[in-house]
């Protein structure tokens, strides 16, 4: 396998040594940026009104941490339900049955066409139009299970419903674009082999659609983490509302908002890193070689500097090389 791999730069024999082009403009730009950044950091760090001590006091405050946990819970619930719903709605939308496709189109139209903030409020007040929620025979027949809406739809349930159902509409469009991006020859080949339409969708089309679906889904997840702060309007103590509750008593708005921002930034950063690795995984089979991870790139530049043989320019995608 290794014999037909294109030659890798090996040692000094083939390495070109040349004087690099001088780029004074770059150095100047870098210097200007560095001065500006240093100044901004200095002004933040030395501004007493920011009260960094208070930021530190509240960063791990029990109420803040509880709020953070709620924010993460809402994000996970909304995204998991949203993705499942999105796949379902996308498959429905592409159905040849006009009623099924129409129902999906209507759902998407409704949930994308109204502000999420309004939907959150509406779910919170749903008990006023349906005081009892029941599962039973349609059109007012006998009920099997049921309960008081105010008890069933807690603020947390209302918030989860609003976020998840809204997300479903957006995910449906993302999944649909993914499915449509897969060449029709793929389903044709799968069906010619005797796969049913469901098998074709599950085993052949969706896995390939993932390449198109995953990046925007990562963005949606990051956006959702921040969007959950909207449910503070229904007094659900997620991260933002937890902070609001605290500063409504001690009036330390800015330090507490900084605490909130630090937590959001930490988790959006973690999600971005996760997104990078997941995208890399779903690119499998599409590029001949996978791009290096930042870690691999770092290692490579270190080994080159020490004058040892460099790692291959890109990691091999699979065990197989590409020979004649």
């Amino acid at each position: 396998m290794s014999s037909d791999v294109p030659a890798v730069v090996e040692g000094d024999a083939t390495e070109i040594k040349a004087v690099p082009v001088r780029r004074p403009g770059r150095w100047l730009a870098a210097a200007v940026v560095a001065v500006l950044v240093a100044n901004a950091v200095w002004s933040l760090a030395t501004n007493d009104r920011l009260q960094w001590g208070i930021v530190g006091d509240f960063l791990f405050d029990g109420r803040i941490i509880d709020g953070l946990v709620k924010t993460l819970e809402l994000t996970v619930i909304a995204m998991v339900v949203g993705v499942v719903l999105g796949v379902l709605l996308a498959v429905m939308r592409l159905s040849s049955n006009p009623l099924v496709a129409g129902a999906s189109a209507f759902y998407i139209w409704l949930f994308r066409g109204t502000p999420l903030l309004v939907q959150i409020l509406a779910w919170n007040f749903i008990a006023s139009i349906y005081p009892r929620i029941t599962l039973g025979v349609p059109f007012g027949g006998p009920e099997i299970v049921g309960g008081d809406a105010n008890a069933l739809i807690t603020t947390f349930v209302a918030a989860s419903l609003a976020l998840a159902l809204n997300e479903g509409a957006y995910m449906a469009e993302i999944v649909r674009a993914g499915i449509l991006s897969v060449d029709e020859g793929q389903s044709e080949a799968a069906q010619a082999l005797g796969m049913t339409r469901a098998q074709t969708m599950r085993r052949i089309v969706l896995p390939q659609a993932m390449r198109v679906i995953v990046p925007p889904t990562g963005n949606e997840t990051i956006a959702m983490l921040k969007t959950t702060s909207l449910v503070s309007v229904i007094a659900l103590p997620e991260l933002l509302y937890a902070a609001q509750l605290i500063y409504s008593v001690n009036y330390k708005q800015i330090p507490l908002l900084i605490v909130v921002m630090i937590w959001y930034l930490l988790f959006t950063t973690i999600l971005s890193i996760g997104q990078y690795y997941i995208e890399r995984r779903f690119g499998r089979g599409h590029a001949r070689e996978l791009p290096l991870t930042p870690w691999q790139r770092l290692r490579r530049s270190l080994t080159i500097q020490r004058g040892r043989p460099a790692l291959p320019l890109a990691q091999r995608n699979t065990g197989g090389g590409f020979g004649a």
Partner: peptide, 22 residues
């Protein structure tokens, strides 16, 4: 339909191999 189709092999001009599988 699927059972009968499985007994007929088909080869396409553009191969249509599944790119995410070896």
């Amino acid at each position: 339909v699927v059972r009968r189709r499985a007994e007929i092999g088909m080869v396409f001009q553009r191969f249509n191999l599944f790119p995410h599988r070896t």
